[in-house]
């Protein structure tokens, strides 16, 4: 049995529907554990104070904002190459979740930036890149909404996703070049000397796992909804043809 068997809508639904509550449960468990651990059981950092604790939301949401786009890129490619409807619908389902993650990352960044840099917003490369990513999500979602025929919409949004990915990466470099900013570098790379200490790292890891599970559950649930909508439409049209 190959992985492509799950591309059959019915098989996909049968497999994922019972799993969704468990994934939600796992996400809730990880998020409660990670956030309580991170918020109340870690020491305050010397130079950041208690505001540092927003990383437990900021970092995972920022990661998922990018990962969601990567997932959309992969599922779009699968749709264009193998024409599995579930793949296209999964990309459609992931976009609003990715946009929400982007907004959470931007908002927590602003809340964190206010005490740290003394401003809600700075045209810092990372913040700016996320703002642009948010615009890409908006355009992608708007294109899905604008087209009535689902197959045509899937094709066009997939091409947009491909082209958009190239330009998103270009924008990232352009923005970096345009303004070397205030934001600290990535603090999670495994080999970095100045990695944040384990005290903060472990609860953060739990939070990241929680966000991944939450994203997975939301996307599976939304994909399921999209599949049901398509099935309903297909049944209605079949009934119409039977009458005609």
């Amino acid at each position: 049995m190959s992985i492509w068997d799950y591309a059959n809508p019915k098989k996909f639904m049968d497999t994922t529907t019972p799993a969704i509550p468990w994934i939600f449960g796992g996400a809730a468990l990880c998020l409660v554990l990670g956030l309580v651990w991170g918020f109340f059981l870690t020491p305050e950092a010397d130079k950041f104070g208690s505001s540092v604790k927003i990383i437990y939301v900021h970092v995972p949401s920022a990661m998922m904002a990018i990962n969601a786009w990567v997932m959309m890129l992969v599922t779009s490619l699968v749709w264009l190459i193998r024409r599995h409807h579930v793949s296209a619908l999964a990309a459609k389902a992931a976009a609003p979740v990715g946009l929400t993650m982007t907004l959470i990352a931007l908002w927590t960044g602003a809340v964190w930036g206010q005490p740290m840099w003394g401003t809600w917003w700075a045209w810092d490369p990372r913040l700016t890149s996320f703002l642009i990513l948010g615009l890409f999500y908006l355009g992608y979602i708007a294109l899905w909404e604008a087209i009535a025929d689902p197959d045509q919409a899937a094709d066009l949004t997939s091409v947009l996703c491909l082209v958009g990915s190239v330009f998103a990466i270009l924008s990232r470099y352009a923005v970096n070049f345009w303004n070397q900013g205030l934001h600290q570098g990535a603090t999670l790379s495994l080999d970095a000397e100045e990695n944040i200490s384990d005290v903060y790292w472990l609860p953060l890891l739990v939070c990241i796992v929680g966000f991944i599970l939450l994203f997975l559950a939301l996307v599976l649930m939304r994909t399921g909804t999209e599949i049901r909508v398509r099935r309903l439409r297909a049944l209605e049209r079949q009934a119409q043809r039977a009458v005609a």
Partner: peptide, 27 residues
């Protein structure tokens, strides 16, 4: 080309194209 044939495609066109213009504008 992406929005040809869509009603109110003009507005959508701006929304799709402007983010793609970012790198060109910056450089």
């Amino acid at each position: 080309a992406l929005t040809v044939g869509l009603r109110r495609g003009g507005l959508l066109l701006s929304l799709l194209v402007l983010p793609l213009y970012v790198p060109t504008l910056i450089f």
